[in-house]
């Protein structure tokens, strides 16, 4: 099995750095690609609809971003989801454990789970071990 391919869509550079380190520690072979906002992520996906090699297995999607936030990304993603030649699991990343946000997230069918920051090494391991899944995934704090 090929090593997993991660997308991290988040405008927080520090978090990008932290995730890069954390994932590298879990498994240096895991590929991770960063996008600083939703729009950039959408643009990349649209350009690589058929190129399964360029597409990720997992997208970690931040909620709070400029230009296009996580929610907007999800509604945009849904419009071309069927054209994507790969099964992608999208997890919503957020700093808040606000139950309202979680409830809102569960309503969205394209989402596979909800991750509350920070995400530790164990968190990544746990996520990977559950992958791929059709069940709702939520990390514990």
């Amino acid at each position: 099995m090929n090593e997993l391919h991660f997308f991290l869509i988040d405008d927080d550079e520090i978090f990008q750095f932290i995730m890069k380190n954390t994932i590298a520690e879990v498994n240096p072979d895991i590929k991770i690609q960063f996008f600083s906002d939703g729009e950039k992520g959408i643009d990349f996906l649209k350009q690589n609809l058929g190129a399964a090699n360029n597409l990720p297995d997992i997208i970690l999607l931040d909620v709070n971003m400029p230009f296009m936030d996580g929610w907007e990304f999800l509604s945009e993603y849904k419009s071309f989801q069927t054209d994507i030649k790969k099964d992608i699991n999208i997890y919503l990343l957020t700093s808040s454990n606000n139950p309202q946000d979680i409830a809102k997230a569960q309503e969205i069918s394209t989402l596979s789970g909800y991750l509350v920051k920070p995400i530790s090494k164990d968190g990544i391991k746990n996520l990977i071990s559950h992958f791929p899944t059709t069940e709702w995934y939520q990390n514990e704090l």
Partner: peptide
């Protein structure tokens, strides 16, 4: 919840 928690979690990480 969002804007303050994010950097603080970053700090702890």
């Amino acid at each position: 919840a969002h804007n303050l928690r994010a950097p603080t979690t970053s700090v702890s990480a």
